[in-house]
């Protein structure tokens, strides 16, 4: 993710709309609110009992559930608060928090 941000060339002052205006409606959709996360949750499917407690507690609706099963997290919007991990009732936890700097090697699909 950090790599991706580096490649985006941000507009200079001559290109930006004046007065800090955002032109057009519904632009909040384009805003990825998870870009300041310092730790990310990582799902451990072997331990998960699919009780969906994490899904119910997530304040950013970032737990992805398919056909009644947790399949991962939406890292565009996950702010890394760790509530999912905290609430996970499984002994030994089916979610672990991984520092972003280590995320590339640790993240499982």
């Amino acid at each position: 993710m950090a790599e991706k941000t580096k490649k985006i060339k941000k507009p200079g002052w001559k290109e930006l709309p004046e007065a800090d205006l955002i032109i057009g409606g519904g632009t909040a959709l384009e805003f990825k609110t998870g870009d300041w996360r310092s730790e990310r949750p990582v799902h451990i499917p072997e331990k998960c009992i699919n009780c969906l407690t994490c899904w119910a507690y997530c304040p950013d609706s970032a737990v992805i559930v398919k056909e009644g099963k947790v399949v991962g997290f939406n890292y565009d919007y996950c702010k890394g608060c760790g509530i999912c991990m905290h609430e996970c009732p499984v002994k030994g936890k089916a979610i672990k928090m991984v520092p972003e700097r280590d995320a590339k090697t640790e993240t499982r699909k």
Partner: peptide
């Protein structure tokens, strides 16, 4: 032409 005014900057 909708706009947002005063966004966090």
């Amino acid at each position: 032409k909708p706009i947002t005014v005063g966004a966090l900057d």
